[in-house]
Amino acid sequence: MTVPELDSEQVAVYQRPDALSDTNTHYCPGCTHGVAHRLIAEVVDEMGLRERMIGVASVGCSVFAYNYFDFDFVQSPHGRAPAMATGIKRVLPDRIVLTYQGDGDLASIGMAEVVHAAARGENITCIFINNTNYGMTGGQMAPTTLPGQKTTSSPNGRDVEVNGYPIRTAELLSKLDGASYVVRRSLHDPKNIRLAKKAIRTAFEVQKRGLGFSMVELLSICPTNWGMTPRQAIQWLEEKMIPFYALGDYKVNPSVADIKI
């Protein structure tokens, strides 16, 4: 350390949240899965929910999410996390049940499960990581891949004539009466990360109050599969993803609007 220690009295103003386990993650350097994990853990700590939390990990890069949190977890088949969460929540209604899903998992193979969980007003929270590709299998085209975006299964760029158009999941789910809180946030800079944390907090408050389905879509970077440095990836998210996936609140029930954080 080239910087001298401070001689004044100091306090820790930020520490690793208790709800994260001490395990090293398998995520690539810069991957914002880690940021999303950290935010969830911070909210769990702040709300004192550790003993009531049950997480449902999905299939994709976040398949090992259960290793990284210090609360109960199960691991779901690909796309079925909202169904598993439904099963858990219906027998244990006072627990806070969270699914953590990527875009291939939630918006492709698991679209039926999430749509119907939302339609039922299932009192669960889905954290939805949108990084425009299938990360775990090596960067294939996902339902969220942008038009023209090159992936390992759209090597010439996503051709909407052949591959169809990306799905804007938050907008889609917001049309369902059972959905109480559906928002899109981004993890590309400090301000947006703080807003994302607030949204996760709100979603958990929604669930705690029994107000129905909540989903927080988080725009994320995938530097490795995008073939970029984390720095470039952050820039790409800001320049390409946000214009297509507008940040904002897509569904906030009046009763949710009363929640003050």
Binding site: V74, S76, R80, A83, T86, G87, I88, V91, A112, E113
Partner: peptide, 26 residues
């Protein structure tokens, strides 16, 4: 007790899976 008419058998069995993980009869 809990009853859900699921959107498919796929969802139904995974609801069973979730509830089974809690150790309750399902």
């Amino acid at each position: 007790r809990a009853f859900v008419q699921a959107e498919s058998e796929l969802a139904a069995i995974n609801m069973v899976y979730g509830a089974a993980c809690t150790g309750r009869r399902v």
